[in-house]
Design a protein around this nucleic acid. Structure first.
Length: 460
RNA sequence: GGUGGCGUAGCCAAGUGGUAAGGCAAUGGUUUGCAAAACCAUCAUGCAUCGGUUCAAAUCCGAUCGCCACCUCCA
């Protein structure tokens, strides 16, 4: 299997550190709000990666964090904790609020057929581990304390893993970010003191004073706790490269003296083809719920995401989603007419498909292979269907639900009666009457299709 | 100003040196009472623009234009 590694900025052969087992960590959501469809693209990507690793024959141990404290509104450490701010603005309890958004996040993931991670860990459940990490850094003389909290002194340590080609070069004259309490703009917060005179909803005792952990720390502490000091793959959104992941590496490697993660794999941005802006602050977010409310199947959105390469940008437009929905529906119709039990996996097609997927998760080519197979007249339909279902282990489009025998429609008696009536009217050549009845059936949510075998119904 | 990236048909999108994948839409046809669905066929001498390198360029180089992201909240 080959994967793009942000460290080397190239596609490299991937082999696990330990035999057949892959240990993978994904930066999860910050649960101060809903996750929009751009966020969900990143999690769909990590799911695709996990499924592809499994398809390649690896066993995957997958951990994901839930950030429920400490993620500031400003990566330069000068902002406010997003959780606290959102909770205060809504007049809610921060603890209850994060639980709600966390639950909603996993509900959306389930909707998109994103497999649950083996381990889900919350920052607030790992305060002790984070404090212990800071102490190790302090023992090595890599930290300093100021009025704001404990900071990592980036001038005192050079990490083994070099992500610095992506390091933000702060331009003195242009940057609107001051160093604040920091000695260097590259330094980052490990522990923030609670503001004097104000009690935070979330705060803990520490050897340095009451406060809360810096955002980057949780990922280091939890990933190493569950996956070891060096593990195989770390994933996240492409925006995490310059600050969050760079800092994770620095602090982790400063503590262990070992390479933190071997592969860093990042998902590209979802953007909007129209002028609609997608940002949380602009309030222009689009949620999975919005897509569902428009009547789309979540699998149509997943299909759309798979037609683009995970690293590149993807323009979301309703027109593109329409196209994806239609394409998916045609695949489903094809499967519904097939008998899986009579089908065998076609080796030539599945190996081409596998080749594409194992080459840095090339789902666009994988899907193109699926269509070539679907339209190949030389292939027995049942065999094609069986092979497509095999492909779906990676694609995760829940195609098995649409194979014949699995989608028995529950047609109301009323609709069946109308269908019988229409057939009779047709036989009597009363076409106006037959069309009127067809309209009634349509109004009840079913489409009438006249096939060579007689009339058939499809759920609209 | 710095950094990363992008510009391929009406839409989405593959394609990093060898002559433009795939899907949607559209058009024509088969079928149908008519539709729909299905099936067949057609659909970029062209890859933002202009130069250059090469036997060969969407792919490499230079310039120009436009767009996006990060450096200020984002995955």
């Amino acid at each position: 299997m080959k994967l793009y590694n942000s460290i080397t900025k190239s596609v490299e052969p991937f082999t696990p550190l330990e035999n057949n087992r892959v240990r993978m960590y994904s930066c999860g959501p910050t649960v101060y709000s809903y996750q929009h469809i751009g966020n969900l693209r990143t999690y769909t990507f990590s799911d695709l990666l996990k499924r592809s690793l499994q398809f390649a024959g690896f066993r995957v141990l997958h951990a994901m964090n839930v950030t429920d404290v400490g993620h500031l509104t400003d990566d330069a450490d000068a902002g406010e904790d997003k959780i606290e701010r959102a909770a205060r603005a809504a007049g809610r309890d921060a603890w209850a609020m994060t639980e709600i958004f966390k639950a909603k996040f996993f509900e959306d993931c389930a909707g998109l057929n994103i497999l649950p991670p083996d381990i889900v860990c919350r920052a607030t459940d790992h305060i002790a581990e984070q404090i212990a990490m800071i102490q190790k850094m302090e023992d090595k003389g890599l930290t300093y304390c100021n009025a704001d909290g404990i900071y990592f002194d980036t001038t005192k340590f050079n990490p083994i893993t070099d992500l610095s080609n992506m390091r933000i070069q702060a331009s003195e004259e242009y940057s609107r970010v001051g160093t604040g309490e920091k000695r260097s703009s590259y330094d980052f917060s490990l522990w923030k003191f609670s503001p004097t005179g104000a009690k935070r909803q979330m705060e803990w005792e520490s050897p340095w004073g009451v406060g809360f952990p810096g955002w980057h720390l949780e990922c280091s502490a939890m990933s190493m706790k569950y996956l070891g000091e060096t593990f195989d793959i770390h994933t996240g959104g492409i925006d995490h490269i310059p600050v969050h992941h760079t800092n994770e590496i620095i602090q982790s490697e400063s503590v262990t003296g070992k390479t933190f993660a071997k592969f860093w794999v990042h998902a590209g941005w979802l953007s909007f083809g129209d002028s609609e802006k997608m940002s949380k602050s602009a309030g222009g977010t689009l949620l999975l719920d919005n897509i569902l409310a428009h009547g789309y199947d979540p699998m149509a959105f997943r299909y759309l995401m798979l037609t683009a390469h995970y690293r590149g940008p993807l323009k979301f437009t309703w027109e593109a989603l329409d196209g994806a929905a239609t394409a998916l529906s045609r695949i489903r119709d094809f499967l519904a007419e097939s008998d899986l039990s009579q089908g065998n996996i076609i080796e030539s097609y599945i190996s081409t498909f596998r080749e594409h997927i194992l080459n840095d998760l090339d789902t666009p080519k994988g899907i193109a292979t699926l269509w070539t197979l679907l339209k190949d007249n030389k292939v027995k339909k049942d065999d094609a269907a069986r092979t497509i279902i095999e492909m779906d282990k990676v694609l995760g489009l829940r195609l098995l639900l649409h194979v014949s025998g699995k989608t028995d429609l529950e047609v109301p008696a009323e609709v069946l009666a109308l269908l019988t009536e229409r057939t009779a009217l047709k036989a009597a050549k009363d076409y106006a009457g037959a069309d009127a009845v067809r309209d009634q059936i349509t109004a009840l949510g079913f489409e009438v299709m006249d096939t060579p075998k007689g009339p058939a119904l499809k759920l609209l």
